[in-house]
């Protein structure tokens, strides 16, 4: 009876309104906004703007909705993929790595080394693992931006983004 009761409650509540995708929506918004504040080298300002998502499929639907409406700098069509489905990851402009997949980060960072690929992660201190921007879940600042790393890889960061971020290291 207890098991039945424990099952019944959420089933009833499932009828209620839900917006558990809220956090994912905001992360997707952040990723889209990064496209406004990061300037890629001219060679990467043509063709599709490719975003790879690793470990957080919730981000794909809101990013796809965004891609249907917006282009990067008004010219580049945004294509959003599950990272595993991208034949050549070096084509990516942004690779998002979920915190549950941090173990794969070193290999991705190695692949992105010296290339204008923005690696976005979650959590504090990820710059030490090679992240370009890390989305924070607490504290006054919502991002860590590894400015030196981005610039070394040929990307320029807008001062507007830097104002909102913790600049590391």
């Amino acid at each position: 009876m207890c098991v039945a009761a424990s099952s019944a409650l959420p089933l009833l509540m499932a009828q209620a309104q839900s917006a558990s995708g809220g956090a994912a929506t905001f992360q997707a918004l952040f990723i889209f906004n990064f496209t406004k504040y990061i300037t890629y080298p001219p060679s990467r300002q043509n063709g599709d703007f490719i975003i790879g998502i690793l470990g957080k499929p919730d981000l794909i639907p809101p990013l796809e909705k965004t891609a249907a409406i917006k282009k990067v700098n008004g010219v580049q069509t945004i294509k959003v993929y599950n990272y595993e489905d991208i034949p050549n990851p070096t084509d990516c402009h942004i690779i998002f790595v979920s915190s549950t997949h941090n173990k794969r980060l070193p290999r991705i960072v190695e692949m992105a080394r010296n290339k204008p690929i923005l690696v976005v992660t979650e959590g504090q201190g990820m710059y030490s693992s090679g992240s370009g921007i890390s989305i924070l879940s607490s504290g006054d600042k919502k991002f860590e931006v590894n400015r030196a790393y981005l610039e070394a890889n040929g990307m320029k960061v807008s001062s507007e983004l830097l104002k909102l971020a913790a600049i590391v290291p």
Partner: peptide
């Protein structure tokens, strides 16, 4: 989402605070 993507990042952050996502 169509409305949200038009907002500057600062306003997105404000909305996130209101949402209590944190």
């Amino acid at each position: 989402i169509e409305d949200l993507i038009e907002l500057p990042l600062e306003e997105v952050l404000e909305l996130q605070e209101i949402m209590g996502v944190s």
